[in-house]
Design a protein around this nucleic acid. Structure first.
Lengths: 150, 150
DNA sequence: GCTATTATCTCGCTGAACGAGATACTCGGT
DNA sequence: ACCGAGTATCTCGTTCAGCGAGATAATAGC
């Protein structure tokens, strides 16, 4: 049986980093009178916006694992806080598009920006092979966790 | 202004991996009739057990950011499911030590074991410098997120 | 046009977590 | 040895996120 010590310790490091990032996200939520789910919703909206897709209420709820009632309540909360707005889809008027407000984007950047900048700065000191190693590891972990969904 | 493209994409990868790991943990919770907080509690108990520290009710609640009422309810839930047991501390009889049951450890290993094994297997293909790069990155991210707590 | 399907919302309920305060135990000072 | 301050946990009543069931509104197929 081989010696897995350094590899195992690295996996623990990944978990520790994940926990701390979760706590950091929870602080953002708390500081702005929100819940973890609300933050996840904003992140999903930013991702959609970045990729040019528009987000409907139903799709958002499905992404977060909420049922329709919970989704409505979620969007109500975010709308009340001024972080999103509801827009009826003109093509299919059953659908409600959820759009993120500029204010929410700035709020998120204020909180997560410094951390992101620091991580980017760190990686700038890495050579090509080191950066590739990090990317390969993160990609594989992401895919492995995603695959386990069945 | 420098080109941050590859570094920024790597940070997005980290976030994606974090999200997927969170979902994987949520599946474990759901599958066993538990809530995210319960899983976090079990992880904290495993960490304490690994480092030989014993965990009191109060310390557990503080770690998870719960107040005393919530902590009592959490331990009640875990005890009802047979995952932990309460043990009065002999030295300071105000304190309640929370000990994890072997059954819960096995349950966790069944769920997270395959993912951990896969990550370890991946890292075995890395040379010394690549592994060090991954460890350096994760350590720095963990510390940066933890430092932001104030 | 009429029916089936899809998207969202409303209502009533359960349960996690909170604040306030009760209870039980420990420890330092006199 | 006692008393009061401090500490650890638990109890009670409340709030609110999320669920299940079902209502409402718009679209699509025949």
């Amino acid at each position: 049986m081989p010696d897995h010590e350094r590899e195992m310790e690295t996996v623990h490091l990944l978990r520790a980093a994940t926990v701390e990032l979760g706590l950091h996200s929870a602080r953002f939520a708390h500081r702005n009178g929100m819940h973890p789910t609300d933050v996840r919703a904003l992140i999903a909206l930013l991702d959609a916006s970045r990729s040019g897709t528009d987000m409907t209420a139903g799709r958002l709820g499905a992404l977060l694992g909420l049922n329709s009632a919970g989704t409505t309540a979620l969007i109500d909360r975010l709308e009340r806080l001024g972080h999103v707005r509801r827009v009826r889809d003109g093509r299919d008027r059953r659908r409600v598009l959820v759009e993120i407000e500029e204010r929410a984007v700035e709020l998120g950047w204020d909180h997560f920006g410094p951390l992101i900048a620091r991580a980017v700065g760190l990686l700038e000191g890495y050579d090509e092979r080191e950066l590739a190693a990090v990317r390969r590891f993160l990609t594989a972990v992401r895919d492995a966790a995603a695959e386990a969904a069945d």
